[in-house]
Amino acid sequence: MLPDLKDDETQFELHFYSADDLVNMGPRSKPTTGKIWLQDLKKQVKSADYTDVNVDEIDQLMAFRYQHQAETQTTAYQSVSEIKRLFEDPDLKQLGDFQPNWQTAQGGNRFVTHDLAQPDFMQTINAPTSAEIGTATHLIFQEIDLAQPIDLKTVQAVIDRLVDQKVMQPAVAERIKQDQVVNFFKSEFGQTILQHQDSLKRETPFSLLLPAKDAFTTVDDADAKILIHGIIDGYFVTEDGITLFDYKTDYLQPTEAGIEKVKHRYEGQLRLYALALEKMLQKPVRNQYLYLLSIDQLVQV
């Protein structure tokens, strides 16, 4: 006996049965057919005494509606990915819009897709998707050393390292537009980021507790909460407050209408990130930016 169990008072027995033993045991009672069961039920109904039955109580139970039904159709813990998956962000497939009224997404309370991804072994086309390229581009922004000059050689070195570490697939690496990364850091905003490396944070995870009624219009419980978690591309802090930024690899037409469309798509997402940062750092977010890599343009949100 194990020393830890010597004073244990639990009593149990072990019996081992073979398949033949189970067959020989047979059914404990003769199965009842549906016809016989129904006949027995009718006899019981006729002989039953209903004088003490509270019909009103039965009606109340049968008509009962749970007052917090909406909460049963969602979860108290959701990622930004789950919330945004239905908005089809071409940059990162899981991300998209955040709106104060999330009921714009189908299904209302549970932000998941009903369709499962096709298994890799069933896919006949293995070309990298825009989501994979966008994710890889974000990884380069996260991993690149800002203490050295950033040029195509620097970017290629990061890519080579990630491929060697099997963090990035070679097919994806070949599709990354390295000039977009270089152009970003050459831009005025990129230079501003480099000047604030002491307070710069990249790929920052967060969790944010929100009233459920702010997320779902069908929830009327003032005390119900949901916990949202996600990752912020980057931010830095100055005396004036926080500057928040997010990279986007979306392809778009470099027109006012095209830019406004992308801005509208992501302004809610940045609003969510800003709210999380203000709660985390107890400082105001003064600036919120999208950097559109495909057209090398900074957009204030």
Rank of each mutant, 00 (worst) to 15 (best):
P90K: 02
D91R: 06
L92Q: 00
K93R: 01
Q94C: 15
Q94T: 07
Q99I: 09
Q99E: 15
P100A: 14
W102T: 11
W102A: 15
T104W: 08
G107E: 08
G107A: 09
G107M: 04
G108I: 14
V112C: 10
H114F: 06
H114S: 14
H114M: 09
H114L: 09
D115A: 15
L116N: 07
L116W: 15
L116P: 13
A117S: 14
Q118R: 07
Q118S: 14
P119R: 02
P119W: 03
F121W: 10
M122L: 15
I125M: 13
I125Y: 14
A127N: 09
A127Q: 12
P128G: 05
T129N: 12
S130Y: 03
A131W: 01
A131D: 05
I133T: 03
T135Y: 00
T135R: 01
A136V: 13
H138S: 11
H138I: 03
H138M: 02
L139V: 13
L139Y: 05
I140R: 08
I140K: 04
I140S: 03
I140Y: 08
F141T: 00
E143D: 11
E143P: 01
D145N: 06
D145S: 06
D145K: 03
L146F: 01
A147L: 10
A147I: 07
P149G: 02
P149M: 03
I150L: 09
D151Y: 12
D151K: 13
L152Y: 05
L152K: 08
L152V: 09
K153I: 11
K153M: 09
T154V: 10
T154D: 08
V158K: 02
I159Q: 08
D160N: 06
R161D: 07
L162N: 02
L162R: 07
L162Y: 02
D164W: 11
Q165V: 06
K166E: 03
V167N: 07
